[in-house]
Design a protein around this nucleic acid. Structure first.
Length: 427
RNA sequence: GGAGGGAUGGCAGAGCGGACGAAUGCGAGGCUCUUGAAAAGCCUUGGGGUGCAAGCCCCCGGGGGUUCGAAUCCCCCUCCCUCCGCCA
């Protein structure tokens, strides 16, 4: 969540920054009002409490000196004050709850460098490799769903039969390639990022910490009976790894990496991009996550982005990097770079990574702090980025590497993970 | 799923109704001594809210309750440990 003290000290600056990403001024204003009332009420409550405590001490003193009648008198007075305290405490906690609810709904303040804009149309392409795409007439033009069906490595009908549409089923070398991609990526990150295999069902507070709840509950799968949520990304469990802890300054940055399935209801996007693997409810992904000191954040952000890019390059795919505009930022993010690979068969750019700097937004929600060298504590910064999301990478590979004869060449980087073979042909 | 035991500061661990935000040890920081270091000695050292400040308030896993007063008593929940049952 955002820093409420900053909101108090420079409300117009914060409100203006939030407006860049579409937060209404009213929303900010009602938070400011509720916060002021909340503080006023708790100050009044505390003053009454202080009197009650003082009287208690006097009761103890009266008892010790054997003055029972004074003790009784004081106790009666205290009972009276307690009634007042209870009333004030009720109001104060209701108002504090209101502040909390409003605060949980407000997204992160975008970084000043973040470009202006209200939707994905305003995102800025900052680089593309290669700079120009192959001529449309020479380009491979069979979409991955056809390539996959022809080679028997992707069976969308079978997936739909067991789970419904948008739950893909990979077969044979198609499944093996997915596994190869995960191994390839984990090996690439090993040594720098600590590999974690977190749970993929998490509690509500874990989903709250990253900002996925309460506002975006419709986007996630919820197991009502056990009140657990299927993670939409490994970012969710990883962000809670040190929840409530104070880390040593020397431990930072903590760099983590996890391969997990990811589950998304895609509630708001029914009917959009539903062909093949363009948008699916379940996919595998390798995620990079970092906890660091604020001054390390920029460097770590660059490193995660560089790692995602280098995986794409090694796989030999065309890609571009987007600087997301303020209006297209995820709730927790202050600055995000998206990576899109080009899929020639369906002639589309597919988002395969989103590398975000969440400043202290998630750290506040998860209460993850570190001890500075002056002994004081401060919130860490968190960063995350996919490296990479495989379903769409799989689609781009299959489309990019399809040959005249219908077989798909296996990218050189993956061959060692696929028994040394160099192509997938119809079986 | 059943039966017990536990959760206290950075860590270990005492406290079981009144001066306890909390003994003690370790760790960390400062100082003395020393050419330097070690050793020894002395001192300091939890988190948070609010306030210009003095101060006041909250926090002993979380939430309720009893009481003039709760780390301490009662209830519920979560997590950890031991045993039994079940099971990939």
């Amino acid at each position: 969540m955002i820093d409420i003290r900053r909101l108090r000290s420079e409300p117009q600056i914060v409100a203006a920054a939030l407006a860049r990403r579409g937060v209404a001024n009213d929303e900010v204003e009602s938070l400011i009002v509720a916060d002021r009332r909340s503080r006023e009420l708790s100050a009044r409550r505390d003053a009454v409490r202080a009197q009650v405590k003082e009287i208690s001490r006097q009761v103890a003193a009266a008892r010790r000196s054997g003055d029972e009648s004074l003790a009784n008198e004081l106790m009666a007075r205290s009972r009276e004050l307690n009634l007042e305290e209870q009333a004030l405490a009720g109001e104060a906690s209701a108002e504090a709850g209101a502040v909390e609810q409003l605060l949980l709904m407000i997204p992160n303040v975008p970084a000043p460098e973040c470009p202006d804009g209200s939707s994905e149309l305003d995102n800025v392409v900052i680089r593309q490799h290669p700079a120009t795409l192959q001529d449309p007439l020479e380009r491979q033009s069979v979409p991955h769903w056809e390539v996959g069906a022809q080679l028997g490595i992707l069976d969308l009908e079978a997936g739909a039969k067991m789970s419904g549409s948008m739950f893909p089923l990979f077969k044979g070398d198609g499944a093996a390639m997915l596994r190869a991609l995960t191994s390839f990526a984990l090996d690439h990150h090993r040594g720098s990022f600590l590999e974690i295999r977190p749970p993929t069902l998490v509690r509500t507070d874990t989903m709250m910490s990253t900002g996925h709840l309460p506002k975006f509950a419709d986007d996630a799968y919820h197991l009502e009976r056990d009140d657990l949520w299927a993670i939409p990304t490994a970012e969710v469990p990883l962000a809670s790894m040190y929840r409530g802890e104070i880390l040593g300054e020397g431990e930072l940055p903590k760099l983590l990496c996890a391969a997990t399935p990811c589950f998304r209801r895609e509630a708001g996007s029914a009917g959009r991009d539903t062909r093949g693997l363009l948008r699916v409810h379940e996919f595998d992904k390798v995620e990079l996550f970092a906890f660091c000191r604020p001054e390390q954040a920029s460097e770590v952000h660059g490193e995660i982005l560089a790692r995602a890019e280098s995986l794409i390059s090694e796989l030999g795919l065309a890609y571009r990097v987007l600087d997301l505009c303020a209006g297209d930022l995820g709730a927790a993010s202050a600055r995000t770079f998206d990576l899109e690979v080009y899929a020639p068969g369906c002639d589309r750019w597919l988002e395969v990574s989103s590398v975000s700097w969440c400043s202290d937004y998630q750290a506040r929600r998860a209460n993850v702090r570190y001890r500075q060298d002056d002994g004081r504590t401060a919130f860490v910064h968190t960063l995350n980025g996919s490296a990479l999301a495989w379903a769409r990478v799989w689609a781009a590979i299959v489309e990019t590497y399809r040959q005249e004869d219908g077989a798909v060449a296996i990218p050189a980087a993956l061959r060692a993970y696929m028994g040394g073979r160099d192509q997938i042909s119809a079986s």
